[in-house]
Amino acid sequence: MMDASIKIILALLISLEISFTTSISLNIALIVCAIIYLLCKRVNWKLMLYSIFLPILPAFGSWSSLYFYGTGDHIHMSFVLLTRIFAYIWIGSCFTFTTDIDKLLKSLEQNFRLPSTFVYGVLAAFNFLPRIAQEVKIIRLAARMRGEILHFYSPQIFFKAILTSLNWSNNLAQAMRSHGFAEGATRTHYHVIKIPIWNWFVALVIFIAVQIFLFMSPFH
């Protein structure tokens, strides 16, 4: 198992690199490798389909913008962007489909010294994700009962969201403190997450392989 924080660092580095390079073949190679990785991990096929269909519109949008409105090397660039957007999605999926925020934050805390106030604060808030989705619906429904329709550009919807965040954060922080969470105190860990050396090694090999591919590939 690759460690979650290594995975996200690698994903960020590679996606940053393909934001600035213009190699179609590298983008395609990354997509293929990501798909193979996800197949090996036996990711749910519905999630895989999601990663195929989701980027179609933005990818097509970027492709057609450059293809029809660009100048100079725009035909090549339009296909770079098309493949780049799919590469972003699939590289992202390698992270989001195979690990979770819990593992990531705990690894960041134990291996990268992220302060525990941040780790557990963010974690507490992320556990509210389903309730937040619900709350957005409630805010809009409550307004509709008063005959108002809230759009995403209505200040009220954001104001209500901020009010709710303030309330919940007070309650959550109090609840955590009453359960013994002390800010800045040293903690011991029940789940000790140590990053094995081979994780760093694999990450380095992948990163170097990307560079070699970029410079050696006859196709761009």
Partner: peptide, 14 residues
């Protein structure tokens, strides 16, 4: 503080 972090994250998720 813990409360700030939670609030910031909740707003971010919204």
């Amino acid at each position: 503080h813990l409360r700030d972090v939670i609030m910031l994250t909740l707003i971010a998720i919204f």
